[in-house]
Deep mutational scan, measured.
Amino acid sequence: LDMDCLPYGWEEAYTADGIKYFINHVTQTTSWIHPVMSVLNLSRSE
C-alpha cells in the first residue's frame, strides 16, 4: 500500500499546528484520515 499516492482530486495539507489532513477538491470536503485508508476500512466492514 503506497501511502504517498493520493487518489485523483486529493491533496495533503497541514493545519497551522502542523497536523496533517487531506482535501478532496472534487467533493470540496476534508478528512483527517488518508483517503486510501478510509476506503480500506469501509471495505472491511462489509
Rank of each mutant, 00 (worst) to 15 (best):
L1C: 00
L1N: 12
D2M: 10
D2H: 15
D2T: 10
D2E: 11
M3T: 15
M3W: 05
D4R: 07
D4L: 06
D4A: 07
C5I: 12
C5F: 12
C5V: 11
L6I: 00
P7M: 03
P7N: 05
P7Q: 01
P7F: 07
Y8T: 12
Y8E: 15
G9E: 11
G9P: 09
G9S: 06
G9L: 06
W10N: 07
W10G: 05
W10F: 03
E11W: 05
E11K: 08
E12P: 03
E12L: 03
Y14I: 02
Y14P: 00
T15D: 08
T15V: 02
A16L: 06
A16I: 05
D17G: 04
D17S: 06
G18Q: 06
G18E: 06
I19A: 15
Y21I: 01
F22R: 02
F22T: 09
F22P: 01
F22M: 09
I23P: 09
N24Q: 01
N24V: 04
H25E: 08
H25T: 13
H25Q: 11
V26Q: 13
V26P: 08
V26R: 12
V26I: 12
V26L: 08
T27Q: 10
T27N: 09
T29S: 09
T30D: 02
T30R: 05
S31C: 05
S31K: 09
S31T: 14
W32N: 10
I33W: 04
I33H: 12
I33E: 15
H34I: 05
H34S: 09
H34F: 00
H34K: 05
H34C: 09
P35Q: 05
P35N: 02
P35R: 01
V36S: 15
S38Q: 05
V39R: 12
L40C: 11
L40G: 14
L40E: 14
N41G: 11
N41Q: 08
N41Y: 06
N41W: 11
L42C: 13
L42M: 12
L42N: 15
L42D: 13
S43M: 04
S43G: 13
S43F: 08
S43E: 14
S43W: 00
S43N: 14
R44Y: 12
R44E: 15
R44D: 14
R44P: 13
R44A: 12
S45Y: 10
S45D: 12
E46R: 12
E46I: 11
E46A: 08
